[in-house]
Design a protein around this nucleic acid. Sequence first.
RNA 1: GCCCCCGUAGCCCAACGGCAGAGGCGGACCCCUUAAAAGGGUUACAGUGUCGGUUCGAAUCCGACCGGGGGCACCA
Length: 818
Amino acid sequence: MSDTYDFRAIQDRWLPVWTELDPFRASDDPDDPRERRYMLDMFPYPSGDLHMGHAEAFAIGDVVARYWFQRGYNVLHPIGWDAFGLPAENAAIQRNLHPADWTYRNIETQAASFRHYAISFDWSRRLHTCDPEYYKWTQWLFLRLFERGLAYRKASPVNWCPNDQTVLANEQVVGGVCERCGATVTKKTLTQWFFKITDYAQRLLDDISLLEGRWPDRVLTMQRNWIGRSEGAYVDFVIEGRDEPVTVFTTRPDTLYGATFFVVAADSALAQELCAPQYRPAFEEYLEQVRRLSDIDRLSTEREKTGVFLGRHAINPVNGERIPVWAADYVLAEYGTGAIMAVPAHDQRDLEFALKYGLPVRVVVDTGEPDPAQTGVATEGDGIHVNSGIIDGTNKADGIARIIAYLEERGLGRGGVTYRLRDWLVSRQRFWGAPIPIVHCPSCGEVPVPDDELPVLLPDLRGADLAPKGISPLAGATEWVATTCPRCGGAAQRDTDTMDTFVDSSWYYLRYCSPHDDDRPFDPEKVRLWLPVHQYVGGVEHAILHLLYSRFLTKVLYDMGLVDFTEPFSALLNQGQVINQGKAMSKSLGNGVDLGEQLATYGVDAVRLTMVFAGPPEDDIDWADVNPGALGKFLARVWRIAGEVTSPVGTPPEGGDEALRRITHRTIREVTELVEGFRFNVAVARVMELANAIRKAIDTGPGPADPAVREAAETLAVLLSLFAPYTAEECWARLGHQPTVARAGWPTADPALVAEEFVTCVVQVNGKVRERLQVPPSVTEEELQALALAAPAIEKAIDGRPVRRVVVRAPKLVNVVV
RNA sequence: GCCCCCGUAGCCCAACGGCAGAGGCGGACCCCUUAAAAGGGUUACAGUGUCGGUUCGAAUCCGACCGGGGGCACCA
């Protein structure tokens, strides 16, 4: 063997061996007695090669998976690709290709990189969401939602780029302009497909309690905010000249007597309808203005509220008062009912509007604060109701309860809740996605494609066929669009939209259980064995969308009886980001770090070790603050140790140097606890300490032939296998073992060796350390107190003063208070 | 504006309410070497953002403030 550590040679030696051994296959055998564990990394999007962010996330996930393998669990650690999406289309337009060409090429690149990066995947379960074998089942799921009324179409305003003639996703609208061409994005109303996630709002909220403590708090907080439950009341207002009353939602029904005007969202159908004829020109002009401003100015919180009077009046149901109806931009068409009662005295937004347009401000809650009409500050807190008829003299809580009871008795309203969460818009006017499996028939309407005709395959479009033309690219494939109605057999047309890629990724964790099943999306028996995912690892950028959609879909599948759990991911770990010089890596800053270059310079193990050693996994890593070279040196040190052990393989450790054995076993115990608690950076530090101890034992201690040195070196290799698989394997071989160290088994700490012989007891006088005593760990409090008080240094420190109190924390500390 | 997280050595980071330092980087010095690199070793450097409180004892718990990061933000 060479006498210098050569990471390239080591990588080249072991990668083919591992590929041959394929040591990370999960067993689907229901009789396999091993405990099952499912470790899932958020699957990557194939945009070129792997980058630093992947390197961190997968290094962290791999520590967990490899630990579980070593513990002897039956581990499912799969990999796949989230392979539909817009970048492939853009690349195809630019290079006159099919999006699949670009996509599969990138997938192969990333797959090879993952192999090289030595992640412990079960490669037999690999999937790609753009494979027809996969998206067939995405379509199947769509149809199940459609059957249950959870997939429906409605007209909805969407982001529209007038230059590119295309619909844009929210993420493609940056600061109100199209990220691609810079044109100002406008709103356009199109008929779109939605999933009715709002039906599940309460369950999605309630089940957050099942994830408490196992998901990061901030993710749960973000989900709660996103769902945005509000409690209050729905109140019906009669509008003069309209048959049906208009309902508003309010969280403060107790302020109903303070309502001095009524507002509907300017861009709502209701505003159109309510506008009186003589006010229409002004309204239309105003509406045009609102539409033009919408997106850029929505981002500004400073913007002054605007509105127009619609020439109509509403009747306050509790006091019969006539109040004017306005259309305004500060009321959102999509939230609540798109209409509000305005109580300017007790709502800051209403107050600002009232003061601007000279509308009355009436105080109905006495909070002890000055008059809002004078100060411009609405009094939104609790207080005693005044000018409020039936609830005069009550506080906020009582007032709300009484008003709701009053409204309900008379059929004028009801208590209720509303949510900020909106239905999930799933249709995209895009090519590279799963086609929506619906046929539009002139006589039958929306007809689902029969299951046995799935998948609805994408037509072969490429290059310029995919360029934006104002309609979905699929609509241009006229032969593909023309079909027959599955119900009546007449001429009909295929739906030309594709599904949001978040639909693909909302169920992939189920597909891994039976990735090649041609008869169903997943095998419920296998899903029962593996799910829910024991540990999910991924970036916090998916805190809401992907994780919320997956939770939603799981609940739908639960309701369908296809799965027996309601939450897909039992535990979640958000790794931090890799940044550089204090900032996110970006082309414009020129501070990008290329993973391939790092791996070529320092080796896979050094980069992986850097990723887990830099700090707690959830913290960002500033690549300018870390030094992969130093970790390469550490690995070389370990490698040298393994080569210096002279005792033969199989030498029993008993009788070896006891001090070293104690260190070895204490390290086993600590590293085990640290890995279980995701304290990987500290675990690596403990492994380094073990290496230092072995180095010392070889050089100035019992020497390289001592059995304890072999035991320590073998332990070192196994512990290191979680973080630096190549070096660990090489060390294992140098120590005389066969591959693979990854399945060598986790060492067990001997309790007798973990126990300390003596511990250092600190003796303080008034909190200051005055003496250290070596005592057995079993020392009693009484003995320890006697020992401490008898110590000369303590007597001196007490200096004859009366001892007021002695705090004894055996065996570590005594504090004498004088 | 509201909510959450974080401030420990030049740097990244450890420390069940109990000796402020585990590990690493960087620095200095020593050994090895003809020399250097590599390697081995020794060592210095902070009193824990600030001010108060609780406690025998606070980096740790509580309050306020300062600084950094994140989330939400016309949601009626």
